[in-house]
Each structure stands twice: as structure tokens, then as C-alpha cells.
Design a protein around this nucleic acid. Sequence first.
DNA 1: ACAAATGAATGAACGGTTCATATACTATAG
DNA 2: CTATAGTATATGAACCGTTCATTCATTTGT
Lengths: 197, 197
Amino acid sequence: MPRTARTQAEQALDERKDQIKKAALKIFAEKGLSGTKMSMIAEEAGISQGLSYRYFDSKDEIFALLVEEAVEESQGAIRNIRQLPGSPLEQLRTFTLQMLDENHKHYFLLVQQAQTSEGVPHRAKEAIERYSPQETIKLLIPIFVQGQQEGQFAEGDPYKRLILFLSVVTGLMLQDAKAIGADWTQEVDRLLNILTK
Amino acid sequence: MPRTARTQAEQALDERKDQIKKAALKIFAEKGLSGTKMSMIAEEAGISQGLSYRYFDSKDEIFALLVEEAVEESQGAIRNIRQLPGSPLEQLRTFTLQMLDENHKHYFLLVQQAQTSEGVPHRAKEAIERYSPQETIKLLIPIFVQGQQEGQFAEGDPYKRLILFLSVVTGLMLQDAKAIGADWTQEVDRLLNILTK
DNA sequence: ACAAATGAATGAACGGTTCATATACTATAG
DNA sequence: CTATAGTATATGAACCGTTCATTCATTTGT
């Protein structure tokens, strides 16, 4: 029964790959490219030093792969905002909660790291070009403006307000990634006070 | 006239030292201990690779020295809050503006870096022990509570509110140190919305 | 037997530090 | 005022210990 056997083998292979990727994502997001050592990834994944190289060619390959995934994921989340239920404010709250959610947080931070690190692999650079904060804000502005018209959001330059808000959220993520990971999700409503009146 | 001559020489020496320290502070604050290379400091200061070693013994010495200064400076700023004029809200606004001010910003960030970096020199570690975020918040709580009684600040656990606020401000500083330095001082009132009702 | 996993060994690159050399400044002599 | 010597200041290429990404001989499990 070669069929089943190979499928099982492949599945086991993929599971290991995912395990390594998940560990790498966490460390890369926290420490950046040059800040993470392969030994850290191994430890986080609970495997030995060399094993990652049975599943990936290099550190750079893992990093690039993850950045590509992160960009895709982030763009998806942003494009989905308009389809979310509720008022603009509620849409933004949901989006923010998603950003701070354990899974997505690492992706957002990874992109952040990739944007500010040096020596980023070419493949990762390409992916990042498709995702800038400016781009994000452009997609958020219509929602914010609508919220202003409905009277929920404060007056003023939408771009400035949103840049401040996104910076605050990203800054918080960076902070709490370094320190002990508190659960900020409770505090999102406080943060939204930056935007509301 | 040996007096004047020596004084001039000493002054020139101190100026060079300050020049190097200022450059080092900026880079250390942005990139952390292991993230900054002596070559970066040299470039920022507009001097050659080796010159720093005529004025300081080692990279670690510069770092430790700066951390000591930063702790002193930060503690001073915090202790001064109660003496500031105006309501608690105005006191906090002034304090926050001071934190975001170009000079103090780097000091605050440096302490932050020293707290989260690894391989911090012993001398710097000692200085940091005298300055924890918890300590800062302890000093801020009475002000916040007074503001609550006067009706300016929102109800709720002062500790949680202040932790969130400080994290936001620190996160912002980190953000904008990496990116192009926008001038957030305009936005402080927006940030204070996190605390007010 | 074979694949999966280990972790010690390798070797290349990195970066803090040094040092031979150059330049600028000051003082003294002619 | 110019020339010369002496000293402090500055340069940046080279040195060398350390740090990791990567490999591989060996073990473990199936």
C-alpha cells in the first residue's frame, strides 16, 4: 500500500515543517532576522540544533517564506474589514482585536521586523514591497471617513489619526513581545478612544 | 599661562566625549546594545572607526555610562511631576511631552533597551535596578487618583490604565525611532484620551 | 535496513579593538 | 616671520577572538 504510506510520510513531514515554522515565526517576530539564532528556533520548537536543515535549506529561506505568508495574511485581514458586520467603529475594533490576536500578532510584527531589519533576503524584500503601512492606511481611510460622517469618530485629518492609531497598536505589540506578554485585548476600547470623540 | 591652556584642552576633550556620547546614545537607543556597532557610532559622530577608543575604554563602558545618565535623568523627570503647575492632567501632559522630547526620548529608550537586551554590562545592570517601570507607575498613581477625584480621569484600576498609557508612549517612541522621526508631540492630547473620560 | 534525529565539530564572517601611520597644532629657535 | 621639532589628535586597515549558520558522523526508533 504505497499510497497510504507515502501520504502519511508526507503528512508527518508537513507537520514537522509547520512546527519549525511556527517556532521560527515567534522568534523572528520578537527578535528580528539577525537577532534570532538557529539554536533559538530549535529550542522553541523542542528539537535539536541541526534538524531544521532536514526540512529547510537555510535560515534565510525560512525567514523569506514566513514573510511571504505574513504579507498575504495581513493583506487578507485588511481587505476583509469592509465585509465585517457592524458600524465602522465596530469594524475597526474587530480588526484591531485580530491584529492583537496571538496568531496574527506575530505576522504583523514579522513584517515590521522585515521592514526595519538589514540584510533581509531578496525574496522577502519583494514580498514586503507589496505591503506598506501607507497602503494599509489607504484602505482604512474610507472606513474612518464613514465613521466621521456617522458621528462616531472625531473630526480631523483621517490620515494623521490612523497613522497614530496604527503606530500605537504596533508599538504595543513590539513592547509586549519584548516584555512578558500581557493580554492587551481587554484594553482595545481604551485605545479606540484615540479615534473616537 | 598653563591654567588657560589646560582648561582649553580639557574643554576640547569634554566636547569630543560629549559628541561621541550623543551619537552613541542615539544609536544605542534605536538598536540596542548588540545591535549597534562601533562603526555606527563613529559614522553618526562623523569620526573614524578607532577614535572612540582615545576617549573611552570600550563599547561596554560607553553603554554603561549612558545608562547611568539615563536612569538619573528619568528619575529626575518623574520626581518632578508633582512640582509641575496645573491640574493632574496638565502635569501628565507636560511629563509626556518631556518624554517625547528629542533629548529625553533617547534616554527613555536606552533604559528600555538595557532592560530587554542580553549581555548588559554589570555596571549598567546595577543602574537599572534603581529604575523599573513599576517604580515609575507607583509615583504616577497618586497623581492619577487625584485626577480621578477631580473628575478629569476615567474610573478604573489606576495601575492598569497607567501601564497601558506608558506602554503606548514607549511603543510610539520605539516605532518612530525606527521609522522616520515624525513629531508626535502634536498628538499627545489624543494619547491622553486613553486616560480621560 | 532505513529514515529521523542528535549535537559536537567546522569554518566563514563579523566586529571590537589595536596600531602603524598621517595630519594638525603648538612651541621654540634662528 | 619662517623653519623645525615636538606633541596631541585622528585615521582606517589589519588583527584576532568570538559567534553562529551549516554539516556530518553517530545514535535512536521503526
